[in-house]
Deep mutational scan, measured.
Amino acid sequence: QWKVGDKCSAIWSEDGCIYPATIASIDFKRETCVVVYTGYGNREEQNLSDLLSPICE
């Protein structure tokens, strides 16, 4: 189960590419979260089910 502060990978809606991110907040009722893309600072809402394991850098 994901928690705030977890590192993950998420698909950015603008280009469909996968980027490393950190979970900033979680809404368990809606099963969504807000991620912050590492190195970019962009925030975006994602479905918890769409999150991927962190990418090894």
Rank of each mutant, 00 (worst) to 15 (best):
G16L: 07
E57P: 12
N42M: 14
W12P: 01
K29P: 08
K29N: 13
V4R: 00
G16V: 07
I18N: 01
T38K: 07
C8V: 15
I55M: 13
Y40K: 13
A21K: 01
I23G: 03
D6R: 00
Y19T: 02
P20N: 14
C33Q: 01
Y37K: 01
K3F: 13
I23Q: 02
D27F: 10
Q46I: 09
V34M: 08
A24G: 06
P20S: 11
T38Q: 09
I18K: 01
F28E: 13
S53N: 10
G39C: 12
A21G: 06
Y37Q: 03
R43C: 13
A10K: 03
I11C: 03
S49K: 13
E45H: 07
D27M: 03
W2C: 14
L51V: 02
G39H: 13
E31Y: 08
K3Q: 14
R43Q: 14
R43W: 13
R30S: 11
C17I: 07
G16K: 02
G41T: 04
L51N: 02
E44V: 03
L52K: 06
I55N: 09
R30C: 02
I26R: 00
N47S: 07
S9R: 15
Q46D: 03
T22W: 10
V34P: 02
T38W: 13
V4Y: 09
Q46H: 14
I26N: 06
F28M: 11
C33D: 00
I26W: 03
C8M: 00
C56V: 15
S9V: 09
S13A: 08
I18D: 04
S13E: 07
C8Y: 00
E57F: 11
C17P: 03
I23C: 00
L48W: 04
I55Y: 13
S25T: 11
D15C: 09
G5L: 02
E57N: 11
E57H: 12
S25V: 09
Q46F: 06
Y19W: 04
W12R: 09
P20R: 04
G16F: 07
D6W: 09
Q46M: 09
E14Y: 15
V35Q: 05
S13L: 08
I11H: 05
P20H: 10
V34R: 00
V36Q: 12
R30L: 10
L48K: 01
S13W: 09
V35S: 02
S9Q: 12
S13Y: 09
V36K: 03
I26M: 01
K3L: 13
Q46T: 06
V35R: 00
A24F: 14
A10M: 06
V35A: 02
C56W: 15
E44F: 06
S13H: 08
I11E: 03
P20Y: 11
V35T: 01
P54C: 11
G5F: 07
W2H: 13
L51T: 04
K29G: 10
K29T: 13
S25Q: 06
S13K: 11
L48V: 03
L51F: 03
I55S: 08
I18A: 08
Y19F: 05
D50G: 04
